[in-house]
Design a protein around this nucleic acid. Structure first.
Lengths: 233, 233
DNA sequence: TAGTGGTCTAGACCACTGA
DNA sequence: CAGTGGTCTAGACCACTAA
């Protein structure tokens, strides 16, 4: 009836984190050091770390060790506020890196969602977004190219919503949102610097203009410990 | 560079599920049988199962084995539609069990959220809600008793929103929602029939009436594989 | 290059579930 | 009561990261 060993270990580490002895974004000692310190094997130690990961207290940077989590970002996906404003409004430091952008056909379900013919070209932008220097969000935008000629020449590090409005006079009127927890595929996990199979929160946003025409399909993969979806209605 | 062994195993099981060879809510063979079938140890086999659990394809019923997941429920938390209607509207079978109800003081943060003095009594209802006979949601409602005299004598298996409106003429006007992934504490995990530390999606909803007075604080814990948050704005 | 995390083996004991 | 899942040991090899 006593607590399992991994529970005692994770409780101990959790106490250290909450006491402030271990600060945000700092690295935990190596698994071998920790398993020795707690007089156990790496298997049990990793069980304890996995529990803390599930609770959102630590996260795993692929092959680089375990780190203390930062606090969650409050985010209202029904507002289309620029990422930079959301993050800096909470006293944190935003950063965006454009990983890829292209105008080419893609997967059938995206063509269907955008209401475009199969194999027709689609604007795609993939960006990695960080808070305080640590990646928390992988964003994949799919846009109907009919509305955005020359998009590839624009600065894509800024807010796309703002770009739509100011450069293309396209204003988003309605959205359909779907949000659920997922495990990251190896490719996306790597882009986020996470281990394959890592937990994320997936947000899909289909945006239309006043005429009900589909403008954009946005896919967001947030690190599961980094996000608090917050909305008022 | 070859795939890890657990990946081959989980791919194989995933293919069987998607092909329909394993149907929803049926139980997988025992871990020992599976590990023998795949010529590996239980440790590796459990790694494969954990990956599938993270993907939402299977779930673990505490000490009773692994089961195939049903499809996700589409749910809009900004509408306050009765659970029964949401579920049956998607061709599924809803069921609600009242686990507990009491009028007593509780934790300080709940008193604070409801704007009530510490140690003042609060109406609490805890309900377990199932789809097609399987628990997916643990709901904890905290209500300001000033608005709901005699609530404990009502039928709490029905929609509380409906009860508020029809029996108490209380209508919810605005809500503040917060949603994020959590790991379940042992007590709540057990209530949901899950293993301790199981992944869930937490939804907190603070409801006010037209006068801006706080009526209710609702906490929902959804099995992470059972839910798709869906909203249109 | 030394050390790390990722993966894996071949067992074991215990508490609990279901027949 | 037989079998199950939950926990744990004491190792091992490999690919990769960081110095």
């Amino acid at each position: 009836m006593s607590k399992p060993h991994y529970q005692q270990i994770s409780d101990s580490i959790e106490a250290q984190i909450r006491s402030g002895a271990l600060i945000a974004n700092s690295k935990l000692p190596s698994e071998r050091q920790l398993s020795e310190a707690f007089a156990t094997t790496r298997v049990t130690l990793r069980e304890a770390l996995s529990r803390l990961e599930g609770k959102g207290l630590i996260y795993r940077a692929n092959r680089r060790g375990w780190y203390i989590t930062q606090g969650r970002i409050n985010y209202d996906p029904t507002q289309r506020l620029p990422f930079n404003e959301v993050i800096s409004g909470q006293g944190r430091q935003p950063y965006t890196r454009v990983l890829a952008q292209q105008l080419a056909p893609t997967k059938p379900d995206i063509h269907q969602a955008l209401g475009l013919a199969p194999l027709s070209p689609i604007h795609r932008v993939r960006r990695l977004r960080s808070v305080d220097g640590h990646p928390v969000l992988l964003e994949e935008n799919h846009m109907n190219p009919a509305y955005f000629p020359g998009l590839e020449k624009q600065d894509l590090g800024q807010s796309l919503t703002r770009l739509f409005e100011q450069q293309y006079q396209v204003r988003i009127a309605t959205m359909e949102l779907n949000m659920y927890p997922v495990a990251l595929d190896p490719e996306r996990a790597q882009a986020l610097g996470m281990a394959s199979g890592g937990a994320a929160l997936f947000i899909s946003r289909l945006s239309r203009d006043q005429g009900g025409r589909v403008i954009e399909l946005d896919w967001e993969y947030w690190r599961h410990d980094a996000l608090n979806i917050q909305l008022a209605v």
